[in-house]
Amino acid sequence: MDVEPAGPDPDRPRVGVRLGRIRHGTATAKVRNVVWSMGDGAQVTCTGPGTPYAAEFGKQMAPDCGHMYTRTSAQAPGGRYAVTATTTWEISWAGGGQTGTLTAIRESATSLAIGELQVLNVP
C-alpha cells in the first residue's frame, strides 16, 4: 500500500492498493482508537483526536483524552517510563469491482522521564 496525504485531515490518508490481480484501487483508513500504556500502570483509550491544550485550561486534566502522572519516573527502569501507543485502523477499500474492510493495528513506543511533580489542588 502507498500512503499519500488526503488533505487537512491526517486521520484519513488516502492509500493506493494493489491486491493480487487488481491493479488500481483506493482505500480510506480511519483511526478507530489509540490505546496508550503510560508506563506507570495506567492505560488511556482515546476514540477521537483529543483536545489541543489551551492556556485557559490551566492545570486541569484534558477533557477527553489525557493522563496525569502522580509520581516521577525515578523508580522506573532507566529512570524513564516506557510509553506505547497502539493504534487500531479501520480500512475501507474498493478495486476491481470489489469492496471490503480491513483492520490494521500498529504500535509505537518511546520513553518519558518525569523528573518533577507539583502538588495541585484541583476541585
Results as ranks from 00 to 15, higher is better:
Asp2His: 12
Asp2Leu: 12
Val3Asn: 05
Glu4Arg: 15
Ala6Asn: 15
Asp9His: 05
Asp9Gln: 08
Asp9Arg: 04
Asp11Tyr: 04
Arg12His: 15
Arg12Leu: 14
Pro13Leu: 01
Pro13Ala: 07
Pro13Val: 03
Pro13Ser: 01
Arg14Trp: 07
Arg14Met: 05
Arg14Val: 06
Gly16Ala: 12
Gly16Pro: 01
Val17Thr: 11
Arg18Pro: 00
Leu19Ile: 15
Ile22Cys: 12
His24Val: 13
Thr26Glu: 06
Ala27Gln: 03
Thr28Gly: 07
Ala29Pro: 12
Ala29Ile: 07
Lys30Arg: 15
Lys30Leu: 10
Val31Lys: 13
Val31Trp: 06
Arg32Asp: 12
Asn33Cys: 08
Asn33Val: 09
Val34Phe: 06
Val35Tyr: 00
Val35Lys: 13
Trp36Gly: 02
Trp36Ser: 04
Asp40Tyr: 05
Asp40Thr: 02
Gly41Tyr: 12
Ala42Arg: 13
Val44His: 05
Thr45Phe: 08
Cys46Gln: 10
Cys46Thr: 07
Cys46Glu: 07
Thr47Phe: 14
Thr47Gly: 13
Thr47Ser: 12
Thr47Lys: 12
Thr47Leu: 14
Gly48Tyr: 09
Pro49Cys: 04
Thr51Leu: 05
Tyr53Ser: 09
Tyr53Glu: 11
Tyr53Asp: 01
Ala54Met: 09
Ala54Gln: 08
Phe57Thr: 08
Phe57Tyr: 12
Lys59Gln: 13
Lys59Thr: 11
Lys59His: 08
Pro63Ala: 14
Cys65Ala: 08
Cys65Met: 08
Cys65Asn: 02
His67Asn: 03
Met68Phe: 06
Tyr69Ile: 01
Tyr69Arg: 02
Tyr69Thr: 00
Thr70Tyr: 03
Thr70Asp: 05
Arg71Gln: 15
Thr72Lys: 12
Thr72His: 04
Thr72Asp: 01
Ala74Lys: 10
Gln75Gly: 08
Gln75Leu: 12
Pro77Phe: 05
Gly78Pro: 06
Gly79Leu: 10
Arg80Glu: 10
Tyr81Ser: 00
Tyr81Glu: 00
Thr84Val: 05
Ala85Trp: 12
Thr86Val: 15
Thr86Ser: 09
Thr87Ser: 04
Thr88Leu: 11
Trp89His: 06
Trp89Ser: 10
Trp89Ala: 01
Trp89Met: 09
Glu90Pro: 03
Glu90Tyr: 07
Ser92Asp: 14
Trp93Val: 04
Trp93Lys: 11
Ala94Gly: 09
Ala94Phe: 06
Gly95Val: 01
Gly96Asn: 02
Gly96Val: 01
Gly97Val: 00
Thr99Tyr: 14
